[in-house]
C-alpha cells in the first residue's frame, strides 16, 4: 500500500493565479493555451507564449511543475491547431500534457516520446481496463478520474491501475459525465468537448428583476434566484425546471465538491494527486484554496490517524463555493 503524500494540483487562468498557486503551496499548476484546445476557452483567459514561459520559470524556480491541458477534441478540419499546441508544449518543456483525444495522444506519443502524458478527465475513463488501454497504447503515466465513481469503485480502480491516479479534491461540480456531456450544445450549439466551453459567455444573460436574478441561456430562462438566495454558474445542468408543476434542480444542484472528509482514506489507498477545479477563477480563489488544501494535506501526512477537518478550512472553502455549500458528490454514494 502506498502512503506517499499526494501532489496538490492547482488551476491557473493567468500568470497572477499561477504565482498565487506556487506561493500558497501547490506542487503543480495546470494551465491552458489561449485557444479552444482546452476546456476553459473563455475570452481573456489563459496563457499566451510569453506568459507560459514566465509562468514556467516562476514555478520551476520554486521547484513546482507546470501541466498543460490540451483536453478538448480536435475535428478533422482543425486537427493542425491541436498538434501545434502539442508541438509548443514539447518545445517549452512542459512537465506533462493533459489530453483526452486518442488521436492526439498517439500524435504526442509518436512525435515526443519523452513528453509525459496525463489522461484528462475529459477522456471519461472510469475503469482500470480503460486505463490499461491508454497506458499500453500511448504510455500515459497518470489519469484524472471523472467525478462519477464511489469511493469503493475508486479504491478498486487505484488497486488495479497501471498508472498514477489523480482525483478532484475541490471545486465546482457539473453534471459529472465529463467528456460525454453535450447538454449545452442543445441550447447554445456548442459543447465542452468541441469548443472548450459550456454556456459560452455570449449566450449568457443575467437580469435583476423584482422577483430576483434571472439567468438566461440563449434566451431560455434556466433559473431565477430569490433576493438572497446563493447562486451558481449559468449552465443548463444547474438550472431549475418544472416537473410535476414544481420547479427544482432536476439535473444537478449548484454546489462544490470537497474531499477534506475523506483525505486519510485517499492517502491510505495511494492517490497520487489531488486536483482543484477552476481555471476560470481569480488569483484570490486559487490562493485561498491552495492554502487550505496544503495545510490539510500536510496535517494528514503528519498523522493520518489523528487527522480532523478544521472548521476554518470548511468555512473558507464553502464561502468560495458555488451555491455556497459542499458535497462529497459520487464519492459518498452507497450504491455502485
Amino acid at each position: 500500500m502506498n502512503h506517499r503524500k499526494p501532489e496538490l494540483v492547482c488551476p491557473a487562468g493567468g500568470l497572477p493565479a499561477l504565482k498565487a498557486a506556487v506561493d500558497n503551496g501547490a506542487d503543480a499548476i495546470y494551465i491552458g493555451f489561449r485557444d479552444d484546445t482546452n476546456a476553459r476557452n473563455f475570452p481573456g483567459l489563459n496563457f499566451g507564449p510569453e506568459e507560459t514561459a514566465r509562468g514556467m520559470e516562476y514555478a520551476h524556480r520554486a521547484g513546482k511543475k507546470v501541466l498543460l491541458a490540451i483536453n478538448t477534441y480536435p475535428q478533422a478540419h482543425n486537427w493542425a491547431v491541436w498538434t501545434s499546441a502539442v508541438d509548443r508544449a514539447a518545445e517549452l518543456g512542459i512537465d506533462a500534457v493533459i489530453m483526452a483525444d486518442p488521436g492526439l495522444l498517439r500524435y504526442a506519443a509518436t512525435h515526443y516520446p519523452d513528453l509525459r502524458l496525463h489522461l484528462s478527465v475529459q477522456a471519461s475513463a472510469t475503469t482500470y481496463k480503460a486505463l490499461e488501454f491508454y497506458h499500453q497504447r500511448f504510455g500515459i503515466q497518470r489519469a484524472v478520474l471523472p467525478r462519477v465513481l464511489s469511493l469503493q469503485q475508486l479504491w478498486h480502480t487505484i488497486a488495479n491501475s497501471p498508472v498514477e491516479i489523480e482525483v478532484f479534491g475541490y471545486g465546482s461540480l457539473c453534471v459529472m459525465v465529463e467528456g460525454r456531456c453535450a447538454l449545452s450544445s442543445y441550447i447554445t450549439g456548442r459543447s465542452p468537448n468541441a469548443s472548450g466551453v459550456c454556456s459560452p459567455a455570449e449566450s449568457v444573460r443575467w437580469e435583476e428583476t423584482a422577483l430576483g436574478r434571472e439567468s438566461r441561456l440563449n434566451g431560455v430562462l434556466i433559473d431565477r434566484h430569490g433576493l438572497n438566495e446563493a447562486a451558481g454558474y449559468p449552465t443548463l445542468c444547474k438550472g431549475r425546471y418544472y416537473t410535476d408543476a414544481q420547479a427544482y434542480y432536476a439535473i444537478e444542484e449548484p454546489t462544490s465538491l470537497n474531499i477534506l472528509d475523506v483525505l486519510p482514506d485517499l492517502f491510505h489507498h495511494g492517490i497520487a494527486a489531488i486536483k482543484v477545479e477552476g481555471r476560470q477563477r481569480s488569483p484570490a480563489y486559487v490562493a485561498s484554496v491552495a492554502r487550505v488544501l496544503r495545510e490539510a494535506i500536510d496535517t494528514c501526512a503528519a498523522d493520518p490517524a489523528r487527522y480532523l477537518v478544521r472548521n476554518q478550512w470548511t468555512a473558507v472553502l464553502d464561502r468560495l463555493s458555488e451555491g455556497q455549500t459542499h458535497t462529497l458528490g459520487a464519492y459518498h454514494r452507497p450504491w455502485h
Binding site: K19, G44, E202, V204, S282
Partner: peptide, 20 residues
C-alpha cells in the same frame, strides 16, 4: 451584479486577473 453583455464582463474580469 452583472447585467447586459456577459462576455464583455467576463473578458474584462479575465484581463484584470491576468495583469501581472
Amino acid at each position: 451584479v452583472l447585467e447586459g453583455e456577459t462576455s464583455v464582463g467576463l473578458q474584462l474580469k479575465n484581463i484584470l486577473d491576468s495583469v501581472d
